[in-house]
Structures are given as structure tokens and as C-alpha cells.
Design a protein around this nucleic acid. Sequence first.
DNA 1: CAGAATCCTCAAGGATACTG
DNA 2: CAGTATCCTTGAGGATTCTG
Lengths: 133, 133
Amino acid sequence: MVVTDAPPQPGIHPGCQRVIEIFGRLGDKWTILSILMLTEKPRRFNELKRLIGGISQQMLTRTLKALERDGMLTRTVYPTVPPQVEYALTPLGRSLSEPLLQLASWTLEHVGDIEDHRVAHDGKKATGEERGG
Amino acid sequence: MVVTDAPPQPGIHPGCQRVIEIFGRLGDKWTILSILMLTEKPRRFNELKRLIGGISQQMLTRTLKALERDGMLTRTVYPTVPPQVEYALTPLGRSLSEPLLQLASWTLEHVGDIEDHRVAHDGKKATGEERGG
DNA sequence: CAGAATCCTCAAGGATACTG
DNA sequence: CAGTATCCTTGAGGATTCTG
């Protein structure tokens, strides 16, 4: 997402700006997944890649770097012969995983309703358009 | 975000797919904000636009349509002379606003930590690069 | 006021090849 | 194994114009 740094939006009070910025970060398709995959225990790079599934190593690198910069996780390099890097949530990251898990749980609980409603909505729209055209 | 419908990812169990899809929806920069702006009470189109601040009517329209399709909100048209449209959360939408508010609250609480860590991280990196080159 | 349609930009994100 | 560098496509999202 964009939400560069502080887009000059006069309307909203400053707090919302930060929320937007963080939400933007969370919404970048892989961030939340990465955090969730680390809640159980620390993981290595390719382990994460496998677990998340469908992410390119490019994006995983970017995502993990951004999360490290934000203090959400730590990156530990073990100077072994085949290089080994371990990613682990910081306390901050772990504290974020709580509301995130709540959200995930909400999603699992209601995704059926949503999909049902989509079908109904699309069906209704199609019928309406048929009558119209 | 992309996450079209069901990207064939063999690794993860099906439930995660839906979570990803919904998270993608939530991450599209305006969805969460729109929902949060409707938690208090129903709002009209331009009222929302003002409240959210910085959103184009194009994106507001798209966002609201998508949310309506998902059953998160209802769109009520009052056939008055200056057309009046009111958006209100459905029970489903309201139920989503709960974990969302938790997340917002987490963000407000920790955004300071994050920003501090960013500064520290960028500073350290700059120093390291200075030494390196 | 609420929205549809059109145009345009820019960056998210994928694919591939290369490195240490 | 764990990245980095490069190229490329797609679409999110902004700005503007037109309508009812």
C-alpha cells in the first residue's frame, strides 16, 4: 500500500493517520500471514516460504525486512556452513499477533456468511440486469 | 490486493486461504477505515468521504460496493430531491468492527514503539553503511 | 448529493537469474 | 540456504469530467 508517511489530510485527527499507516502495512498481503506463521515458534527463511505458500522469496525478504525495521521480529544469522537465518517475533510482534489472531478467528467464523452473501448479491444483480436488459 | 479467488497453493490448509482472501479485502487501504467510520452510526456518502479524508469518491464507491456485496453494510436510498443515500453496518459488519477496533486500539497503543524502532533501525543502518563504505 | 466513466500513475508483487 | 538485483505485469487508487 501507499500511505507514504503523513499525507496531508486536514479532516481527521492525527491518531487516525498512524492507524491508517499501520493498517496499510498490515494490508500488504503477506505481513499478517508472516506474523501469524511466527506465532508458534521461530522459523527459518525457507520454512516460512513453505508455510506461507505462494509468496516469492523477493516478497518474503521485503516483508521480513519491513517487519524487522518495525521491531516486530528479529533476524538471527547462524554462521553455519549452509547459512541459517532464524526469524522470531519480538514481544511487540507477539502483542500484535493477539488482535491478529482475533481477526483471523472472526474471519474463519464468518467467511461462510460472506461467501453466501456474495453469491446472493451477485445472483440478485444478475437477475436485475437480465430484467433490465 | 490481488488474491483473486483461490490461488492454487498446495502447502496451506484451506481455511488459511479464506483468511488470506478476507485479509486482502481488509487491507485495501480504505475498507477498514470505512467500517470504523460506520460503527458509531449510519452515514451518508459525502459524510463518509469527509470523515475518512483523503479518499476519492471513486474509491469510496468501490469500497462501499464491495462491502455491500460482502454483506457488511446496507445501502439505503431515500428518494428525496437531492438524492440521499445512507450506509449502515449490518450485524455482520458490526461483528467485524469489534476485532477491528481491537486492532486499532493496539495500533494506537504501539505506534510510538514502532516509530521509535524505525528511527533506531534506520540510524543503525546508516551508521553501518557509513563504516562499510 | 451520489455516483458512473475515463484516463493515468506508480508501486505491489511475481519470475528469473545470480551470489556468497 | 538465504538472500540480492533486475525486469515486467497488473491493478490499486488518484484526478477529472459527466449525469440524474
